[in-house]
């Protein structure tokens, strides 16, 4: 069983190098981004999430939509546990996997093989588990002998194939994504699609931020529209998409 429950969650980012005085006691609602404000000490604060409440349960496929700076990424990071809420509370059951930045931690000077270990360890896999699935990962990436070459010699497509092959090896109960992953040439794309479909199918809760209407309508059964860090709409993908995309 997986469960996520947000109750009035806020995320306030203190900005220490901006001049707080000029903004004191003045709330500015900017076109994009969270709400700018000042705290009791007169410091500038960006409220990236403002009173977010929802609950996700097994089977939920949630699409997050909204303008740049509406709080999608912050919400994903809040879900992954990177940020703790400044206000409000979160209840979370289930193991979380994040496919937000699949190239994170890849060292261009190290070989593909070393990078598989590095990347998989960052995702929380044990050394023995990685060894067990090493060949599977290498085969999937179609890198062949290049796997023992430094990653800096790779083309950007090969680089992504490597990152994709390692990162999609985990099967978390709750899966977080920032845009649908689609990599490689025509041939690899089909394989990647199949892998993604399987990954999504095996996860209990999927939360994905996207600007792609088709993708959301196809993969999600619930959509949340964020605006200035608040939930503006929480309904079926069809309704939310037609409200947002028009």
């Amino acid at each position: 069983m997986a469960l996520i429950e947000f109750k009035d969650v806020c995320a306030d980012f203190p900005i220490y190098n901006a001049n707080g005085r000029s903004l004191k006691r003045r709330l500015i609602e900017v076109a994009t981004g969270g709400k700018l404000g000042a705290d009791t000490h007169g410091r500038v604060v960006v409220r990236a999430l403002d009173g977010i409440s929802f609950s996700f349960k097994d089977g939920d496929r949630v699409g997050l939509i909204g303008h740049n700076g509406a709080g999608k990424s912050t919400l994903l990071r809040m879900l992954s546990g990177v940020y703790k809420p400044s206000l409000g509370s979160i209840r979370l059951e289930g193991e979380i996997g994040s496919l937000i930045d699949i190239s994170l931690g890849i060292d261009p000077e190290a070989s593909g093989r070393e990078n598989i270990f590095l990347r998989a360890a960052l995702l929380g896999m044990k050394n023995s588990q990685i060894k067990e699935r090493l060949n599977e990962i290498i085969d999937f990436s179609e890198l062949g002998d290049f796997v023992d070459m430094p990653v800096r010699t790779y083309s950007s497509g090969m680089h992504l194939r490597l990152a994709f092959s390692v990162s999609t090896i985990v099967r978390p109960e709750i899966l977080l994504m920032d845009e649908w992953l689609s990599v490689g040439d025509e041939n690899f794309k089909h394989k990647a699609e199949a892998r993604m479909a399987e990954l999504v199918q095996n996860t209990r809760i999927l939360v994905i931020a996207s600007h792609d209407r088709k993708m959301i309508e196809h993969n999600c059964n619930r959509a949340i529209l964020l605006e200035h860090g608040k939930i503006k709409m929480d309904a079926s993908p069809k309704e939310v998409c037609s409200a947002y995309f028009g």
Binding site: R77, S80, G81, V82, I96, S98, D101, L104, L122, L123
Partner: peptide
């Protein structure tokens, strides 16, 4: 920073 902001390690 990169790792801290992306992964809950």
């Amino acid at each position: 920073e990169g790792i801290i902001k992306q992964l809950p390690i």
